[in-house]
Amino acid sequence: MIRHTVFFTARDPDDRDTIFAGLDILRANPHALKLHVGRNLQTDDIPGPQVDFVVYGEFADAAQMAAFKAHPLYAESIRIVRPLRDLRVSADVLIKDEGD
C-alpha cells in the first residue's frame, strides 16, 4: 500500500475556500482506496509556518496511484488549485504491512 500525503498553503488567505473546493473534487476520483481532504486545524503551538490543507490518500500500488493522477478530476483540481497555492509538499510512503 502507498500512503500519499500532500500539504498545501494558500498564497492569499482569501482564496482558501476556492482551494478547498478544488482539492475536494478529488474525493470523487474512483482510483483511491481512501481519500481525505481537510483544512489544517492549526492546533500546534510550535512557532513557524502552518499549512492550510492536507490531502491524504491510500493506494493499493503505484499503478493505482498513477491511474488516480491520470483521471480528469485530478487535472481539474490542478487547474483550480495550482494558480492559487503557495506551497505544495508531497510525501509517499510504501507500507508493506500494518506493522511497518
Rank of each mutant, 00 (worst) to 15 (best):
D24E: 04
T43G: 10
L23G: 02
R27M: 08
I25W: 03
F20R: 03
T43M: 09
F20E: 13
Q42D: 11
L33S: 06
D45V: 14
P47F: 02
L35Y: 08
F20H: 06
P30N: 02
A21H: 07
I25N: 04
G38P: 07
G48N: 12
V37K: 10
T18N: 02
N40M: 11
T18A: 04
L33Y: 05
A28Q: 07
H36M: 11
L23E: 03
Q50F: 10
L35R: 05
T18Y: 04
G22A: 11
A32P: 02
I19M: 01
G48E: 09
A21N: 06
D24G: 00
D44C: 08
L26S: 04
G48K: 11
I25A: 01
L23F: 02
N29F: 03
D24Y: 00
N40I: 09
N29T: 00
L41V: 09
P30Y: 01
G48L: 10
H36F: 13
I19E: 02
L41K: 06
I19A: 00
I25Y: 06
G48V: 11
V37A: 04
Q50H: 14
V37L: 09
Q50G: 07
G48P: 11
L23Q: 02
L41R: 13
A28W: 00
N29C: 00
H36T: 11
I19Q: 04
P49R: 14
G38H: 09
N40L: 08
I46R: 15
N29E: 12
P49N: 14
F20Q: 08
A32Q: 05
P30T: 02
I25R: 09
H36R: 15
G22M: 12
P49D: 15
Q42M: 08
L33D: 11
A32K: 06
D24I: 07
R39G: 06
A32T: 12
L26E: 02
T18P: 05
P47Y: 04
D45K: 11
P30V: 01
